[in-house]
Design a protein around this nucleic acid. Sequence first.
DNA 1: AGAGGTGGTG
DNA 2: CATGCACCACCTCT
Length: 605
Amino acid sequence: MELQFDPENPKYEYITNGGRAIEIFKELAKERVLAVDVETTGLDPHLDKLLLLQVGTPEISYIFDAREIDLKNLPIVHEVFENQQIIKLFHNAKFDYKFIRRHIGCETLNIYCTFLAEGVMTAGLGASLGLKDLAAKYLGLTLDKELQKSFIGLTGKIVPAQLVYAGIDTLMLFPIFEQQLVKLNKLDVAKIAKLEFSVCRVVAEMELKGIYIDQDKWRGIIANLDTKRHELAQQFQDMVRPYYKTTQEDLFGNTADAININSNAQLMDLFNNKLGLDMPSTGVAILKTTDHPAVNLLQDYRGYEKLISSFGDTLLAKINPITKRVHPSFMQLGAATGRFACNGPNLQQIPRNTEEAPFRECMNPAPGYDFVVADYSSFEMRILADLSGDENFVNAMNGGLDMHSYTASLMFDLPYDSIKTEHKDKRQAAKAIGFGLMYGMGPMGLAAQIKVEKEEAQQYMNRYFGAYPSVKAFLDGMAENAVKNGWSATPGGRKRWYKQPEKSDPDYNKKLSNIQRQAKNHPIQGTNADAVKYALVFLHERLKKEKVKGDVILTVHDEVVCEVPEDCSHDWSKIQEEEMVRAGELFIKKVPVISDPFVGKVWEH
DNA sequence: AGAGGTGGTG
DNA sequence: CATGCACCACCTCT
């Protein structure tokens, strides 16, 4: 690969006055493709400063000093970024988008992101996607990212070494872009890459906006849980103390804990060596089947410990001092299947509301706004119905039947109407099978799940697949092709790649089984992800088109939450439903796609 | 610092 | 052969 720039001596111009900036942007406006990068004092667009904005052509990088130039008030800057005809190249566009949006005020349209493109082309392989990695992979360049850190908290002058670093970052993007384009087409994932680029902007806006959390209510919940946790811990310690002779009192007469209740090693010692129980682990599945007062106390304690440690003060500490909201990070290629992953805080794992821990009730819209919450109803089941095309499955779903009850009636040869009334346990079993099989579960797993012998579980599976023969054919076909090709794909064109194990690998069979299960699940989970991502793009477009002063603020796998003004929230809920259904119907045509919208002041319905 | 165990979500 | 997918956070232990 012949580089068009000299990595030792990149061509750049450093601009510190508005007049020169206008001249340059007028020229840049004539380009078809521009590379963009920013240098900032930190990672938080609300707290940290924008230092440099680099905009480059393949030949030269223009480095604008954002402290010296009032970029926000230069219309030509906005025109270039919002110009649909000019492709803007980034590496991890989401980051730059947020700073440009927050500090310059413009949206960036027509994004190409080398980070996302690489992620789409290596999904499932666990490849490193940093700019440094791509520079090495595509250009054979060794990049020194040390200078990137030199911008953190910077208040003084920019030095030439920093400008060289800043310049290379845009110049590099062009040759990477060119090579990726060829590869995207060769691997037939250009369409899904485009989807990711479109979603990127919605995600960036979503992260900027964040979500309000009622701190007082949150603290109240935690305090209550903490009291209960403490009581249970005390009871547990009092109960097990007699088994530990060395227990001592401190100066104040407080009795020390006999063991650390959070230590599984110590719990195992207690249960197996002191209480005479024979337990393979301290997991909830084992605890449930063990009848001992200490075990019961531990289970109750664990419930509170989990909630407090994972969702207590640590989450409140993430509230942004500027916006007073939390700003989770949504990683759009966080999962190998195409699903989002979320962290800092992970709002995708906030517990469902219960009476004593209604955490989701603490997430509220701003004054004068409503939440519109909508999820896809039984979406993965509908996807399986459509992709397999199984006649029984599709007909039952189109007949509006309760699928788990219908499955149970077929499997156990019972009248459909009797399932919900007399045979609830059979419905539960059918449900477990239905979900388990979407994940490639075998008879062992099923037996453990519904507490029957392996042979009986195998019989259930045989009857399930007997009732839905095309479901079996579809899942087996996915597994077979994944092993044969080294990848699986969704109808939307999203691929997931698999490292094919060597025949000589001692774990060959284990790894092969893993691939087969992952490949059975991928088209289902992946199609869900594809539909939600199209929905996010559609919703964002409609918010603009209808001039609704609201935002998409959260997505949880099959659910989207918008925050919109009260006076239009009911109208918007219809639109949200419509757009989510439209997105789902891109892939699901044999059974209905149903989205249930809900308007209110709290998350969850 | 990283692995392993446990458990929260879809 | 091993035994249900996809994640992230917190804890303990090494």
